[in-house]
Simulated assay, not measured.
Amino acid sequence: MSALYTAVATASGRDGRAVTSDVKLAQPTALGGDGAGTNPEQLFAAGYAACFASAMKLVAGKKKIDVTDVSVTAQVGLVANGAGGFGLEVTLGVEFPDEIPAETSRELLDATHQVCPYSNATRGNIPVNIVVE
């Protein structure tokens, strides 16, 4: 299968610099850093939220549902894996306009989770919780 798009970034570590655009990386204060920049979890959260929202627009468009005002917030947690390493956990909070019924919202979330590339990449690898806010 050929990639439709490939993003490329080079990084020197959590306290270094990433080259793809002008992104300065910094260790978060919760992990002992100065927090004076972006960290990989923030980048992952931004990517997942944007990707999930875009996938939802695709899914909703096929069902003739307007999701123009839908908002997706990704919370990415860095967690100890119990073996001396680390893993991630994700909560996607999706805010729908009031006019979209709860049952329709849940159907859209389930369908989007099957389409979104981030969801497909993480499925079975890290816990992803999707909630309606």
Score class of each variant (00 low, 15 high):
Q42Y: 12
T10V: 09
G16V: 07
V79A: 06
A74E: 03
P127I: 00
L31V: 08
N125K: 12
L88T: 01
A111S: 12
G37T: 14
F44D: 06
K64I: 02
T6Q: 13
P28M: 06
T112N: 11
E107K: 15
S71W: 00
H113E: 01
P101K: 13
V128I: 10
L108M: 11
D15V: 08
Q27H: 05
K57D: 01
T10W: 03
G61L: 10
V79I: 09
A60K: 13
C51I: 13
G87V: 01
D22A: 10
P28R: 08
C116Q: 07
G93R: 15
N125D: 00
V115H: 03
I65V: 12
T20N: 06
T68W: 07
V76D: 04
Q42A: 12
G33W: 02
G33E: 05
Y48Q: 09
K57I: 02
A3V: 11
G33M: 10
E103W: 03
G47D: 08
M1F: 03
A111K: 12
Q114L: 10
C51A: 10
R106V: 04
D66N: 11
G82T: 01
K62T: 13
A121C: 01
Y48K: 14
G87T: 01
A30E: 13
G47Q: 15
P97R: 13
K57S: 14
T29V: 15
V131R: 10
G77E: 09
I126M: 11
G33T: 09
V90A: 09
T73C: 08
L43A: 14
E89Q: 08
G85Y: 04
K64Y: 04
E99I: 02
